[in-house]
Design a binder for these strands. Sequence first.
DNA 1: GGGTTTCACGGGAGCGCTCCCACGCGGGAG
DNA 2: CTCCCGCGTGGGAGCGCTCCCGTGAAACCC
Lengths: 350, 350
Amino acid sequence: MNEKTSRDALAVAGRTSPTLEDLASAAGVSRSTASRAINGGSKVSPEAQAAVDAAIVALGYTPNRAARSLVTRRTGSVALVIPEPDARVMMDPYFAAVITGVNEALRDTDLQLVLLMSRAGDDSARTIRYLRGGHVDGAIVVSHHRADDWVETLGATGLPTVFIGRPWDTASGIPYVDLDNFEGGRLAARHLAGIGRTRLGSIAGPTDMTAAVDRLDGWLQGLREAGLQPGPVIHGDFTTAGGADAAKSLMDGTPGLDGVFAASDLMALGVVDTMRAAGRRVPEDVAVVGFDNHDIQAANGLGLTTVAHPMVDMAATAGRLLARAIEEPGIALESVIYPADLVVRGSTAS
Amino acid sequence: MNEKTSRDALAVAGRTSPTLEDLASAAGVSRSTASRAINGGSKVSPEAQAAVDAAIVALGYTPNRAARSLVTRRTGSVALVIPEPDARVMMDPYFAAVITGVNEALRDTDLQLVLLMSRAGDDSARTIRYLRGGHVDGAIVVSHHRADDWVETLGATGLPTVFIGRPWDTASGIPYVDLDNFEGGRLAARHLAGIGRTRLGSIAGPTDMTAAVDRLDGWLQGLREAGLQPGPVIHGDFTTAGGADAAKSLMDGTPGLDGVFAASDLMALGVVDTMRAAGRRVPEDVAVVGFDNHDIQAANGLGLTTVAHPMVDMAATAGRLLARAIEEPGIALESVIYPADLVVRGSTAS
DNA sequence: GGGTTTCACGGGAGCGCTCCCACGCGGGAG
DNA sequence: CTCCCGCGTGGGAGCGCTCCCGTGAAACCC
């Protein structure tokens, strides 16, 4: 008895936190009743409930998550998997938005967010081991490049999973949250055509991302519907610098260019700067449409016409979907596609 | 026996992962020996070690973290506490850098990063409860505003903690990682004075952040040393828009202004744009020094002279410090102050 | 009224792991 | 040869919790 006490004291460096047993005896009930009172007190008398509640406050009791996990086989945490976390990628405001949104959704639950960033290769194997190891109750995967094999891997584990951004392989039926990128591209084309622009070029995103491909497909479809030529397409990397480079190519290759659709606002910003530097007026000579409705769109003093992409909301939706999948195991989740919405501003005025 | 098996199977939805006991019997050793082999095999014969290693691979064994935590009282995860997580703050590349850096450091350990974002008020109480509840082995706190009471709170829990950015209250002795912000401000002043600028203004950061205050103090000290007048000081919010606004005030208030120190690159960018829009040439009429050496500094085609602020490295250092504090409990950690370094570019040419 | 159901509660078992301790066995010292 | 020490090993206990089941008392039905 004495030994036990001293060992305990030593193990936690002098202060041991109260256990459920302590709580129960302080409240004058049994361990079982205390447990019931804590976990949504059905079958608990009001008096017992009150006594336990009081004791919780008095003792500053916090359940031991490890002990609880051990028996419930639930960890109370979910993973946010971000492939390829080099600094450049992390700087992308996209991830900030994702983290913000997911966190927002999880705030209402008692789930905690564990960040899992994994590079390609070995590290990815490590991440997968972690996910399979039952350390988390579910995962949100920021779908990115075609090469990722997360879909099949996670599908095989049976771990509740939600993708942000449509994964390449949707056959597995894993739910995802995405924007209607196709429609977004189509809206851009229709808008530019609608204001009378006819010689249109596009700066698309990387071909290994579904969002980029969908936006481009929608764009081309929109042009077709408007009876316009497809026009030149250059693939950029979603960055401002990439957009600037692509804009130069576009100008060189297409003299009478009067409208550009860039698949991200950052690229659109590069386009505007480049055009202006080359003496073209925006929107008079060249109208520019971006994508994302990023805060930075107003950076050059000109409002940027763009397709809204409520990333924080979308990430929050993903978080809620996952929370539900964890709450009700076996439930079939529906993917959520946000409708695309064009925000018209100065860069395509008149 | 039958009941037990079926319950287990049900609990994990048809597939139960192997336990240490399974591992041991597969390897032909006892549970104890298997455990020893896994956790750094002292007192384990080479044969036993090999047998266990082989069985791990064969069974795809992963230790149950909950069970381990229960007895070791270590959770294998650390918290990254980010106060005030509204979207605007998260968009700050600073946090992206912090996350990247911390993750980088933790990659070498088997610690996982749990993200804890807490708003002021109730939420902060919840976060503190979480930290006190023994759910993590340590915490990294992104020190931000004066109002935060993390220092005292965490100091009281005895939880290993490292701050990123010097906290207001250093009396508690909690270690932190920071840049020598004072010296950074001083370098800016000396540099501008050195290239012959004499009518200098500054755009400082919020007064409730140590970094902002230190940079300003250093700046003023540098001016004094150079025998220059202190000049006007305007407090901005570290954003580009804030920098632009402040620049207007500076111009209005100080006609002959020929040099500006902005306490962040984003603000410096706003300054440059505003100056140019007002017809002032940079650097000829007005030289501008920023702070952070942010990637975006080249955005307007002009290289920005700035004080380097290796945020990713610093965050990684914080991560390593924390890992060490967890590894060797009771060890006294030293704070790490990165020296300030001025990067001279076009915005202060000649 | 007896029998049955309902309800709140308490005790026991066990989740998978680590740690302590006891055990056997070989080799060096006396 | 005996004693002892150290090394590798195995079993037992227990970490704090949840869940199952048994118990007694109150409430209900016919």
